[in-house]
Amino acid sequence: MKRSTIHLILVLIWAVPTLASYAPGLEAQRSQKPVKSSPAVLFRQFIPSIAEQFFGMPVVFGGRPELTGSTDNSWLFYSIFTGAAKKAGLRYKTFMPMDLLLSNTHRIRAEEVKNGDLIVLNNNFAAMVYQVDPGGRMHFIYASKKRGQVTTFNSDNIVYYAYWLEHFKGFFRINEDLLMPARHK
Rank of each mutant, 00 (worst) to 15 (best):
F168A: 12
V159Y: 14
A85S: 03
Q45W: 06
P181I: 04
T18R: 09
M57V: 14
V113W: 02
G63Y: 01
E52N: 12
H106N: 07
Y130N: 00
L10R: 07
F61I: 10
K145P: 03
T151Q: 05
A162Y: 12
K2F: 06
Q29E: 11
F168H: 12
L165D: 09
A84I: 02
V35M: 15
N175F: 09
K114A: 06
L90C: 00
P58R: 13
Y163W: 15
F125P: 00
L42C: 06
R30V: 15
R107G: 01
V150L: 01
H7Y: 11
N104A: 10
E66K: 13
N115P: 01
E112G: 05
I50Y: 09
K86C: 01
E27M: 13
S79V: 02
F77P: 04
R147G: 10
T68P: 03
R173H: 15
K93R: 05
V132L: 04
Y22A: 15
D133L: 15
T18G: 07
Q131V: 02
A162F: 08
E66M: 11
P134G: 02
L178F: 01
E111H: 05
K36L: 15
L26D: 12
H106R: 02
N154M: 03
S74H: 04
S79M: 08
S31R: 15
I9C: 06
A182L: 12
Q149R: 11
F168P: 05
E66T: 14
V159F: 15
A23D: 11
R91E: 12
S70M: 08
E111D: 14
K93F: 06
A182R: 10
I9G: 04
T82D: 07
N123Y: 01
G135W: 11
Q45M: 12
R137E: 14
N157H: 15
M128F: 05
